[in-house]
Design a protein around this nucleic acid. Structure first.
Lengths: 201, 201
DNA sequence: TGGTATACTTAACAGTGTTAAGTTAAATTA
DNA sequence: TAATTTAACTTAACACTGTTAAGTATACCA
């Protein structure tokens, strides 16, 4: 009687196969340079089978990056727990954020640049991944203010400003890899540290 | 004997027609959704004629973006002359940069997000307009350091960090217009002022 | 064993960027 | 003025793309 369950399991397996193949190709070749046929070749199925599991190519990419984005949430959430040094926690979270973007540039750009272009109003609505990432950032800023490590700044605006800064450096490093940046690590640190310095009590 | 000159002038005219048509379409429809055939239709020539004037679609995009950059350079350069208060000059330039991006959001994204995706490695090389915009920013930071308004920071890295910050807030405001930002003006000021505050002597 | 639903494939459509070859018209030369 | 060269532009095609309608085979259930 478990045939139905086995069937569902097999379907789920193929779904996973597709996502994994797509993600691998997206990351290594870039979203634009990956065709549905290439993905199909990799999993040794016909291209059309993908459309039985995903609405279209954008939907596939959407699904492909969701789990890595949830990984970012996990990382940031871990760092939040340490309340003894909220500034250091903020600094580490900022670095983790940028490093995540550099590790999965395609995923990052899809979520924070490409998706909002085609799905206006979406991507940061209540409960979405983006919104949840930001709410963690806000909580950390609040902790810095509460412990008087930061001066009495507006938590909401400050959170948004910090997000702007890390978002900006992430995208510049992704989009202009050949620009003569001083040194990736140094630049990231300078962005984050300068913002933090400007917020201290 | 001016036939050669007239010919050259006519060539230049068609070149301009192509760029104008392309830029209009890129901005209104998005780079991806504009085909060479659409551009050709608009100027009432065959698609192939474009390839006599531009290497490929990315090269055409590149030319279209250059005008955007020149506009940005003009906007920002107006503020450079005032050396009496270099910090205020920097602040105003930062605001001008972001406001330019918000005034021409499609052009801004085309230049700083879409183009690097298709013209890898290009856009910021020696002597380019983009490089000139950045070198202007660097000069202002240097002036702040020279006048001891900033502490003895690394001018190169600091310039890049400032660029990251304004780039980030510009893109977030463009891409997530429905996000509950505190207030556009306040956010922009907070980003710029916090960075400046973190750099002061 | 017969019928049905499911999983998957084939073949095609309408589009893309790009190029080799061909045409037309203008400028130059004899 | 007539022949020739040269430049500007077009036609037709190639090798792709995302996507879908229609068809096939297979596993399940009665």
């Amino acid at each position: 009687m478990g045939t139905k369950e086995r069937r569902a399991r097999e379907k789920e397996q193929l779904r996973r196969q597709i996502i994994d193949a797509a993600r691998e190709l997206f990351v290594s070749e870039g979203y634009e340079n990956v065709s549905m046929r290439k993905i199909a070749d990799k999993i040794e199925y016909s291209p059309t089978v993908i459309y039985l599991y995903f609405k279209d190519k954008a939907d596939l990419l959407d699904s492909a990056c969701q789990e890595t984005l949830l990984g970012l949430l996990d990382t940031v959430e871990l760092l939040k727990r340490d309340k003894s040094d909220p500034i250091e926690a903020l600094r580490k979270s900022g670095r983790a954020y940028v490093e995540f973007g550099l590790e999965y540039p395609q995923d990052y750009k899809l979520t924070f640049v490409i998706r909002p272009q085609f799905q206006k109003g979406l991507g940061l609505e209540e409960g979405s991944v983006g919104e949840r990432v930001f709410s963690y950032l806000r909580a950390m800023v609040a902790e810095c203010v509460r412990q008087r490590a930061f001066r009495q700044v507006d938590v909401e605006t400050t959170g948004q400003a910090l997000w702007s800064a890390v978002h900006g450096v992430t995208l510049l490093l992704i989009d202009f890899p050949d620009f003569p940046w001083t040194a990736t690590d140094k630049l990231i640190d300078t962005v984050i540290d300068t913002m933090i310095e400007g917020l201290k009590a």
